[in-house]
Nucleic acid binder design. Structure first.
Lengths: 232, 232
DNA sequence: GAGTGGTCTAGACCACTCA
DNA sequence: GAGTGGTCTAGACCACTCC
């Protein structure tokens, strides 16, 4: 035996290289798995693994009978990690602080009910919190928790543990929707974040469900210095 | 034969269900692949495929010798599709229009050079464009193209084809970095988008390289109605 | 050292889709 | 109908990591 057995990652990288240098132009067909397997001296399963990876990232499109081809419009996908605020802050080496600004049990207002597709007036726990990085406001959190879905939350005092952390540990979810957008700092957000009213803020909104039942809705507001970054 | 052979997706879904209903709590260990294979009446490779999928989505963590365990902090990953503006607009059924606002060849200013990690003053094509959806401003594009990396761009008149579309078809890239953030509309952006100066805008910034050489830097500015949405 | 996941192989059958 | 990808199997060896 001389060389190490070829890995599916090697094959993937080589295929990716050929696409990058236009050896296979966009729209052009790739050789079949069998052919490539022979070329690389690997089994078809290994080639398949490599090509599945490329397909999953949108670099190639695969169809039975038709074969594989380089995507015309590389539907590039960006992947963002969505960590807990605390982790996010501590990972930068900064000190994390948390404070609960308000806590009340109320019927869901129209806006919240509509967003979660439930009846207006359902009992909810409404929390307002602030997360700080090195004593500076990092994120203002406005959260609604369905007491129908998570009744235990009613007994919890969120003064020392953030609702996100508590929910992660106590309430599983099956589906989530996440949205990013820019907005003007509201009369609640601006003072909490120490910004002038109407400043641009970066907002992340998240909704989660378990088996169709809404669990929580949260609006996370960041100062305009905040960036969400990813590499492709 | 009675039942269809079990699929790795079936196994994945079943494992995911057990995690969702806390049959396996966060932090708890999962059975080994061999055990699960026996339970499901499948081969270890099939179970492996299912578990790899869960691991890729951050639901479980896997370690040799230690085994697999349910993630304590489900490091949920969000995946966003990054389409061409035109596609993005036309997919909503809206009419797409494009206009070139300015085109000039200049040395890279300090800010751009720093961002791309190149020498200041390198020759760049600087374009300013506007993309409209149903006649309304949708995205203001401020783009820098390295003429060293893409010399053909110098001959191209971008009055009818957007630089993004042209680049996708003519300039491959190997690495890209993408960032989202909120900002206040600048003196260039505000009038182009028909917004008051200083309005909150949603900005996407993208840098691409081919084999270490910078190709293009683009800042895409959207009105505050813009949302980037994803489902997990 | 030993257990668990990571990966490869060779062969097989199936399912989708194009012609 | 036939070609190509999708997937499963059974067995094997390797690599990492914990003890």
């Amino acid at each position: 035996m001389n060389a190490a057995r070829i890995s599916w990652k090697d094959i993937r990288d080589e295929l990716e290289r050929r696409i990058a240098v236009r050896e296979w132009a966009p729209g052009a067909g790739l050789p079949g798995e069998e052919t490539l397997a022979a070329e690389f001296g690997a089994s078809r399963a290994t080639v398949n693994r490599a090509m599945q990876d490329l397909a999953a990232r949108g670099l190639i499109e695969r169809k039975r009978k038709a074969g594989s081809r380089v995507s015309e419009n590389p539907v590039r996908e960006a992947r963002f990690v969505i960590p807990l605020v605390r982790q996010e802050i501590e990972d930068t080496g900064a000190r994390y602080d948390y404070s609960l600004l308000s806590r009340e049990i109320v019927g869901a207002p129209e806006l919240v009910a509509a967003r979660l597709q439930i009846a207006q007036g359902a009992r909810f726990l409404h929390l307002r919190c602030l997360h700080l990085a090195d004593r500076a406001p990092y994120q203002y959190e406005d959260r609604w928790i369905s007491l129908m879905a998570v009744p235990e939350a009613e007994e919890v005092d969120f003064s020392s543990v953030g609702p996100n952390e508590w929910l992660v540990a106590h309430a599983p979810f099956s589906t989530a929707e996440y949205a990013f957008f820019a907005a003007a700092a509201s009369g609640e957000e601006a003072p909490a974040l120490g910004l002038p009213l109407g400043s641009p803020v970066f907002v992340g909104e998240r909704l989660t469900w378990l088996a169709g039942r809404p669990i929580t809705l949260v609006r996370m507001t960041h100062p305009p210095t905040h960036r969400v970054v990813t590499r492709l």
